[in-house]
Simulated assay, not measured.
Amino acid sequence: MNEERYPALYAPKDGYVFVVTYGRSGSTLTQSLLNAIPGYSIRGENGNLTYFLSRAIHLVAKHDMYTWRREDLAKEPQERRAYLKNILGQPYDPWAGAESVEPEDFRLSLMNLFAEKVLKPETGCRVSGFKEIRLHEDPNFFESHLDYLRDSFPKTRFLFQTRNHDAVSRSSWWANKPKHVVYKQLKQADEMFSEYSRKNPDICFTISYEKYAEGIDYAREIYNFLGEDMSDDAIGATLGQKLRH
């Protein structure tokens, strides 16, 4: 069973929440609201580490030198690709051993290591995860990256966070870039968030930072999506502290 082979992935019994956004969107407030829920352990940024793990996963799953060998291994030698007929399984194959790499085990093993060594959920944690501001930086791989997260971490949910582009562009995070470049990147990110949510509506919720001004009622919408219940006092304390900051 997966729970036995990849224990770190399955340790948080209620799954994972990933906050996907961009710099200066107010996502640290969301991180704080999540960590106010008993049993939640939502880590901060990790430098987009899962992107690099997902790239490795994607290579093993999709690169011809892996896939051809896996596909031909079960065939009779005469039925194999001409390129592989005389070298598959031999020590002189330039990609010797590639046929034995199992993509699903490779994917789950890497993400299990990430959960164990990076997320490191505390004892009693029932929901783990992180927030990251860099997942949008490779638009061509964005959907694949999120799919690998969704398929690897049990009970995954995504919180996409957006903010008024003008407010974001005025922050020091973006100050060294021309405004039109910033606007283009933010617009593209919002579109990617929307498209992924459209394809995966049951596990996605989009947070608008400006709506936090509505206070407790809006924060409760997020909690309701996650199936969590928090008192008004607990929500208000977190909102008040972070909004003043």
Results as ranks from 00 to 15, higher is better:
V20P: 02
V20S: 03
Y22V: 01
S27C: 00
S27H: 07
L29D: 01
Q31I: 00
Q31T: 04
S32K: 13
L34H: 05
G39S: 12
E45L: 14
N48F: 08
N48R: 15
L49D: 04
T50P: 05
R55P: 01
I57W: 04
H63W: 07
L73K: 15
K75C: 02
L84T: 05
L88R: 11
G89N: 09
P91M: 04
P91N: 12
Y92D: 13
W95C: 14
G97R: 11
E99Q: 15
S100Q: 15
S100G: 15
S100M: 14
S100Y: 15
V101P: 08
E104Q: 15
D105Y: 12
F106E: 00
R107V: 00
S109D: 10
L110I: 05
N112W: 07
L113R: 09
A115F: 14
L119Y: 11
P121G: 14
E122Y: 09
G124N: 10
R126D: 05
V127K: 11
G129S: 12
I133T: 09
R134A: 02
R134D: 05
L135Y: 15
E137K: 11
D138F: 06
F141A: 06
F142I: 00
S144F: 03
S144L: 10
L146S: 08
D147F: 10
D147L: 14
Y148G: 01
L149R: 05
P154N: 02
P154V: 06
K155Y: 00
F158M: 04
Q161R: 00
T162Q: 13
